[in-house]
Amino acid sequence: MLFLNGKLSNIINKYELDYLIITGDLSNNIFQHKKIVEEIKKIKVNCKILIALGNSERSESRFLHRKRIDNRQDLVREDTNREKIRVLINESEIYNKDNLKILFYGFDNSIYGNEKHDFGLEASEFDYRILFAHSPNIIKFIEKNHIKYDLLLAGHTHINQINIPIVNKLKNKYWYYHIGLKVTSKKVFCISRGLGTSRLPLRINYFPGITIFNFN
């Protein structure tokens, strides 16, 4: 994955990260998959790389054609199953060090309706609750079930990918979601702009981006 400012792993390795969270859509098809998994393995983190499944892990896409497949999620899990890399499919990971207890929970809404929550975690005390999922639609599930969180991360929308005023709103089914952060009382909801493209291999008016959160 080569960008104008270097390889993805080199860009990320400049920062000393504890956790890296990838909110799905690793690749559009099986041909890109191996390269991207290799790139992810080169990324250095102090703790873990956590991955949520995206709709691209359930489908094969070539240009405008998209076909549903059922085994890519297993492939992602097998290929990335390393000590420092974990795919969270409705599962949690707990960081507990230096008097800091952080909950990470990865929802699987790569197919709508697949998302489940471990409600046993609601009773536990955490300094921060970081939830993540692929599609920002997870907010409906979270609000419906009154799930506690401090930071919610999602992706999927590519921030419209092609941002042409007016056309943008007519064409995009996710136009009502915000870009970047939405801060409500005591909660932060972040929708990442993502790195890749879907169908058309181009972006207009919005750069790909990585967000680094520093918890003080």
Partner: peptide, 11 residues
């Protein structure tokens, strides 16, 4: 626009 990554830092 497609190939330049921007890194945002949020505290």
């Amino acid at each position: 626009n497609t190939n330049l990554i921007k890194v945002e830092k949020i505290t």
